[in-house]
Amino acid sequence: MSKKKILLWALLAVGLTGAAVGYMIWNKPHKDVKDADALRVAATELYNRFSTDSAKARSLYTDKILEISGEISKLSVNLQNQQIILLKTPVTGAYVNCTMEEKAEGLKEGAPVLIKGICSGYMGGDADMGLPGDVFIVRGYPSNK
């Protein structure tokens, strides 16, 4: 094989590898929340941490996969028909607000639950209107551990 042909094949191989890597990066999947290792925390503690030292809580929890234990205050669905599970906190009207990617079956208000999901952070309501904020969890899954 001539040197020219070897060079052409090498260039083609490099080009194809580059295209394959680019395609894989472009289409890389989202974090596997369901089977990922998670930081365990109780809903009450999570809420208290955000209420007392939000900067520290942000660095500890925001964008992290958490496994949250808590008591179900309310079950509902959002406008996209995703299940919403509100976990009780020490503050009346304030919740750990979980939007589920996979519906948890057999839940009852007042019962304990374990949810795995990504913490978006804390968002305040409106103090003047007496509406406390929530800690938000996205991409929630029921956890069986």
Partner: peptide
């Protein structure tokens, strides 16, 4: 209205 910017979910992770 208020929202957390990191709670936007896209089809592609990238």
């Amino acid at each position: 209205f208020s929202l957390l910017n990191n709670a936007f979910h896209f089809k592609k992770a990238l």
